[in-house]
Lab assay of single mutants.
Amino acid sequence: TTVEVQGVEYRFDNPEEAEKFAKKMAKSLNLRVELHGNKWRVE
């Protein structure tokens, strides 16, 4: 599972970890998070 934060990609073996990371990043950067296939995008 991939998390893309403002163009930078982070890879996770565990989808739940990816989701937690994406939501945490979105909250700290005041952005929103969307799931596209198996990629979380924070923008």
Results as ranks from 00 to 15, higher is better:
residue 22 A to P: 00
residue 3 V to Q: 01
residue 18 A to E: 00
residue 23 K to M: 12
residue 25 M to Q: 05
residue 15 P to Y: 08
residue 8 V to P: 00
residue 40 W to I: 10
residue 4 E to I: 14
residue 9 E to T: 12
residue 37 G to F: 04
residue 36 H to L: 11
residue 13 D to H: 09
residue 26 A to G: 12
residue 23 K to D: 05
residue 9 E to R: 08
residue 3 V to P: 00
residue 19 E to Y: 10
residue 39 K to G: 08
residue 34 E to T: 14
residue 23 K to C: 15
residue 6 Q to M: 14
residue 18 A to I: 00
residue 25 M to K: 04
residue 37 G to R: 03
residue 11 R to D: 07
residue 36 H to W: 06
residue 31 L to F: 07
residue 11 R to I: 13
residue 32 R to M: 12
residue 35 L to W: 13
residue 38 N to G: 13
residue 42 V to M: 05
residue 10 Y to T: 04
residue 11 R to E: 11
residue 40 W to T: 03
residue 11 R to G: 06
residue 2 T to N: 05
residue 21 F to T: 01
residue 15 P to Q: 08
residue 2 T to L: 14
residue 37 G to A: 04
residue 15 P to M: 10
residue 33 V to S: 05
residue 28 S to W: 12
residue 38 N to A: 06
residue 14 N to P: 01
residue 2 T to Y: 15
residue 42 V to H: 02
residue 23 K to S: 06
residue 14 N to A: 08
residue 4 E to W: 13
residue 7 G to Y: 03
residue 16 E to K: 11
residue 41 R to D: 04
residue 10 Y to G: 00
residue 37 G to Y: 04
residue 35 L to C: 15
residue 37 G to E: 10
residue 24 K to V: 09
residue 13 D to V: 08
residue 13 D to M: 08
residue 10 Y to W: 09
residue 25 M to I: 11
residue 21 F to A: 02
residue 17 E to I: 07
residue 17 E to G: 04
residue 4 E to F: 11
residue 24 K to E: 14
residue 13 D to E: 12
residue 14 N to E: 09
residue 9 E to S: 09
residue 13 D to Y: 08
residue 18 A to F: 01
residue 37 G to I: 03
residue 34 E to G: 07
residue 11 R to Q: 12
residue 43 E to K: 09
residue 11 R to A: 10
residue 6 Q to N: 12
residue 26 A to C: 07
residue 6 Q to W: 12
residue 40 W to D: 03
residue 23 K to T: 07
residue 31 L to A: 14
residue 21 F to C: 14
residue 8 V to F: 09
residue 8 V to D: 04
residue 31 L to N: 02
residue 2 T to S: 10
residue 3 V to C: 14
residue 43 E to V: 15
residue 29 L to S: 03
residue 26 A to P: 01
residue 33 V to K: 02
residue 21 F to M: 02
residue 40 W to V: 07
residue 18 A to L: 01
residue 36 H to T: 10
residue 32 R to K: 12
residue 10 Y to F: 11
residue 37 G to N: 11
residue 24 K to P: 00
residue 2 T to G: 05
residue 3 V to L: 02
residue 12 F to G: 00
residue 40 W to H: 03
residue 19 E to G: 04
residue 17 E to F: 05
residue 23 K to Q: 09
residue 11 R to F: 14
residue 16 E to A: 11
residue 4 E to A: 08
residue 27 K to I: 10
residue 26 A to R: 01
residue 18 A to T: 00
residue 9 E to A: 07
residue 13 D to G: 09
residue 39 K to L: 08
residue 36 H to K: 10
residue 19 E to T: 03
residue 14 N to D: 14
residue 20 K to G: 08
residue 38 N to H: 05
residue 1 T to H: 14
residue 2 T to C: 15
residue 7 G to M: 04
residue 12 F to Y: 04
residue 27 K to R: 10
residue 5 V to S: 03
residue 42 V to F: 06
residue 3 V to E: 00
residue 41 R to I: 15
residue 26 A to Y: 01
residue 34 E to V: 14
residue 36 H to D: 13
residue 15 P to F: 10
residue 28 S to V: 13
residue 17 E to V: 07
residue 27 K to L: 12
residue 38 N to P: 08
residue 20 K to R: 13
residue 4 E to N: 08
residue 3 V to T: 01
residue 5 V to N: 02
residue 33 V to I: 13
residue 22 A to Y: 01
residue 8 V to C: 15
residue 13 D to R: 08
residue 13 D to A: 10
residue 7 G to R: 03
residue 4 E to H: 10
residue 31 L to H: 06
residue 23 K to R: 14
residue 19 E to V: 05
residue 42 V to W: 02
residue 41 R to V: 15
residue 21 F to W: 07
residue 12 F to M: 02
residue 23 K to E: 06
residue 3 V to H: 00
residue 17 E to A: 10
residue 40 W to P: 03
residue 18 A to W: 01
residue 29 L to H: 06
residue 27 K to D: 11
residue 30 N to T: 02
residue 17 E to W: 05
residue 1 T to E: 05
residue 42 V to Y: 02
residue 24 K to I: 11
residue 24 K to S: 13
residue 8 V to K: 11
residue 5 V to W: 06
residue 9 E to F: 09
residue 43 E to W: 14
residue 42 V to G: 03
residue 42 V to C: 15
residue 29 L to P: 03
residue 15 P to L: 06
residue 13 D to C: 15
residue 1 T to Q: 09
residue 34 E to F: 12
residue 33 V to F: 14
residue 41 R to F: 15
residue 15 P to G: 08
residue 32 R to W: 09
residue 1 T to K: 06
residue 20 K to T: 10
residue 12 F to V: 01
residue 16 E to I: 12
residue 28 S to R: 13
residue 17 E to C: 15
residue 2 T to Q: 08
residue 27 K to A: 14
residue 41 R to S: 11
residue 10 Y to V: 05
residue 34 E to Y: 13
residue 41 R to G: 05
residue 17 E to R: 05
residue 26 A to T: 01
residue 16 E to T: 10
residue 33 V to Y: 13
residue 14 N to F: 08
residue 30 N to H: 10
residue 26 A to I: 01
residue 8 V to A: 06
residue 5 V to D: 01
residue 1 T to A: 12
residue 28 S to I: 14
residue 18 A to V: 00
residue 31 L to P: 01
residue 16 E to S: 10
residue 15 P to W: 08
residue 7 G to S: 04
residue 2 T to W: 14
residue 35 L to M: 09
residue 15 P to D: 07
residue 17 E to M: 08
residue 25 M to R: 03
residue 30 N to S: 05
residue 7 G to D: 04
residue 5 V to A: 04
residue 26 A to W: 01
residue 37 G to K: 06
residue 25 M to E: 03
residue 9 E to W: 05
residue 15 P to N: 07
residue 43 E to A: 14
residue 22 A to S: 02
residue 30 N to K: 07
residue 39 K to A: 08
residue 28 S to E: 15
residue 6 Q to F: 15
residue 16 E to P: 03
residue 35 L to F: 14
residue 12 F to S: 00
residue 17 E to S: 09
residue 25 M to C: 15
residue 35 L to H: 11
residue 12 F to H: 01
residue 7 G to N: 05
residue 42 V to D: 05
residue 26 A to V: 02
residue 11 R to W: 14
residue 9 E to L: 12
residue 32 R to E: 09
residue 5 V to R: 01
residue 38 N to R: 05
residue 22 A to V: 03
residue 23 K to Y: 13
residue 25 M to H: 03
residue 18 A to G: 05
residue 32 R to V: 13
residue 13 D to N: 10
residue 3 V to G: 00
residue 2 T to E: 07
residue 1 T to F: 15
residue 18 A to K: 00
residue 13 D to P: 09
residue 12 F to P: 00
residue 28 S to G: 06
residue 13 D to T: 11
residue 41 R to Y: 15
residue 40 W to F: 06
residue 16 E to V: 11
residue 34 E to K: 09
residue 37 G to C: 15
residue 36 H to P: 01
residue 19 E to F: 09
residue 16 E to W: 11
residue 24 K to D: 13
residue 21 F to Q: 01
residue 26 A to D: 01
residue 43 E to M: 14
residue 35 L to N: 08
residue 24 K to Y: 13
residue 6 Q to A: 10
residue 40 W to G: 03
residue 36 H to N: 10
residue 43 E to I: 15
residue 24 K to G: 10
residue 6 Q to D: 08
residue 3 V to N: 00
residue 22 A to H: 00
residue 27 K to C: 15
residue 39 K to N: 10
residue 39 K to E: 06
residue 10 Y to S: 02
residue 6 Q to I: 10
residue 33 V to A: 15
residue 2 T to A: 08
residue 14 N to M: 07
residue 39 K to C: 15
residue 7 G to Q: 03
residue 8 V to S: 05
residue 18 A to H: 00
residue 24 K to F: 14
residue 39 K to H: 10
residue 24 K to C: 15
residue 20 K to M: 13
residue 25 M to W: 06
residue 32 R to I: 12
residue 30 N to M: 05
residue 42 V to A: 04
residue 8 V to T: 08
residue 18 A to C: 09
residue 30 N to D: 08
residue 25 M to P: 00
residue 14 N to V: 07
residue 32 R to S: 12
residue 17 E to K: 06
residue 39 K to V: 14
residue 29 L to A: 04
residue 30 N to C: 15
residue 34 E to L: 07
residue 14 N to Q: 09
residue 24 K to T: 12
residue 27 K to T: 10
residue 17 E to L: 10
residue 33 V to C: 15
residue 11 R to V: 13
residue 10 Y to H: 06
residue 28 S to Y: 13
residue 37 G to D: 13
residue 1 T to S: 10
residue 29 L to C: 15
residue 32 R to N: 12
residue 13 D to I: 09
residue 10 Y to L: 04
residue 9 E to V: 13
residue 31 L to G: 14
residue 11 R to L: 13
residue 26 A to N: 02
residue 25 M to L: 11
residue 7 G to C: 15
residue 22 A to K: 01
residue 35 L to Q: 11
residue 5 V to G: 01
residue 20 K to V: 10
residue 30 N to W: 04
residue 19 E to H: 06
residue 28 S to C: 15
residue 43 E to L: 14
residue 22 A to E: 01
residue 33 V to E: 05
residue 6 Q to Y: 13
residue 31 L to K: 05
residue 9 E to I: 13
residue 17 E to Q: 08
residue 19 E to C: 15
residue 38 N to Y: 04
residue 18 A to R: 00
residue 34 E to C: 15
residue 24 K to A: 14
residue 34 E to H: 13
residue 36 H to V: 14
residue 3 V to W: 02
residue 40 W to C: 07
residue 24 K to W: 13
residue 17 E to H: 08
residue 18 A to D: 00
residue 36 H to G: 04
residue 11 R to S: 10
residue 13 D to W: 07
residue 36 H to R: 10
residue 32 R to Y: 09
residue 33 V to W: 07
residue 14 N to T: 11
residue 36 H to M: 10
residue 25 M to T: 06
residue 10 Y to M: 04
residue 39 K to Q: 08
residue 19 E to R: 07
residue 37 G to S: 04
residue 25 M to F: 04
residue 11 R to M: 12
residue 10 Y to N: 02
residue 23 K to N: 08
residue 39 K to I: 13
residue 6 Q to E: 11
residue 11 R to H: 13
residue 28 S to K: 14
residue 43 E to P: 06
residue 3 V to R: 00
residue 6 Q to V: 10
residue 40 W to E: 03
residue 32 R to F: 09
residue 28 S to T: 11
residue 39 K to S: 09
residue 41 R to M: 14
residue 16 E to M: 12
residue 30 N to E: 06
residue 10 Y to Q: 02
residue 4 E to L: 13
residue 8 V to L: 09
residue 25 M to Y: 04
residue 43 E to S: 13
residue 12 F to T: 00
residue 30 N to R: 07
residue 4 E to R: 07
residue 21 F to S: 00
residue 2 T to R: 08
residue 38 N to K: 06
residue 28 S to H: 13
